[in-house]
């Protein structure tokens, strides 16, 4: 891997189990052992033959219809799912910004959760202390920061979650549907923060349905369909593909 490359994906494939629940799952589990061909029918290929090389500092967009594998691809880059075929290399600390909340511990205070979340994302105690004040300011809930999270409203949790994750400074930032939480004021602030992160040194991969976001921010865009990358990185061809998928 060359010094300049941040993400390198080669011939990657990922299988995902079909959702099974309740009795069927138990029976499957108990009898599956005795059946030889079990894996084929119960797995589907969520990603197939993915080849992608992203350089440091590049901003890459991913577009595609629901269920095409965009979010799964982000999770693979984040290291959450391991490939079933091929390989992936990612250089540096990676954070995935998706949905709200950050896996908070309800009984700990906001401040303690900042610490815990920071160390979950691989930052040292010293790095976290440096960022702490900034995170609290950003969240705008300083008055409640030493209360347990369980006393927070949903909006406050979302604010703190976003404040923590967006203020950790990752080398690779993965954005799943650039999100909007909180009131108008906070939404504006978070959109600015995301733009700031994108313009910074970080390598960014954005999944979005919004052409305007992709157009204004990305160097390259790929269309994803049925788990495969189907366009060559050019903005126009990705948009064309996306429009055709819509119809």
């Amino acid at each position: 891997m060359i010094e300049n490359t941040a993400i390198f994906i080669e011939n990657l494939a990922l299988d995902y189990p079909r959702n099974k629940k309740g009795v069927g799952m138990l029976r499957e589990f108990l009898t599956g052992r005795f059946r030889k061909k079990k894996s084929k029918e119960h797995m589907f290929r969520a990603l197939n033959n993915i080849n992608l090389k992203i350089n440091k500092g590049e901003v890459v967009g991913i577009m595609g219809p629901n269920g095409s594998g965009k979010s799964t691809l982000l999770r693979v880059i984040a290291g959450i799912y391991a490939p079933d075929n091929g390989s992936i290399k990612v250089r540096g600390k990676t954070t995935l910004l998706a949905g709200i909340g950050a896996g908070f511990q309800q009984d700990l205070t906001g401040r303690e959760n900042i610490n815990l979340t920071g160390s979950i994302y691989g930052f040292t105690q010293k790095e976290i202390s440096n960022m702490e004040e900034h995170i609290i300011d950003f969240s705008g809930i300083r008055d409640f920061i030493d209360d347990p999270i369980r006393t927070y409203s949903a909006g406050m949790r979302a604010r703190l979650g976003f404040a923590i994750i967006s203020n950790l400074e990752p080398d690779v930032l993965l954005l799943d549907e650039v999100m909007s939480v909180g009131d108008h004021e906070f939404r504006k602030k978070s959109r600015e923060r995301i733009e700031e992160l994108i313009k910074g040194d970080a390598t960014v991969v954005i999944v979005s349905h919004s052409k305007s976001i992709i157009k204004s921010m990305c160097d390259r865009v790929y269309g994803v369909s049925n788990g495969e990358i189907v366009t060559d990185g050019d903005l126009e061809s990705a948009f064309e593909f996306y429009e055709s998928e819509k119809e």
Partner: peptide
């Protein structure tokens, strides 16, 4: 650096 292959 995170490096993942298909096999452990």
């Amino acid at each position: 650096m995170l490096e993942l292959q298909a096999k452990t």
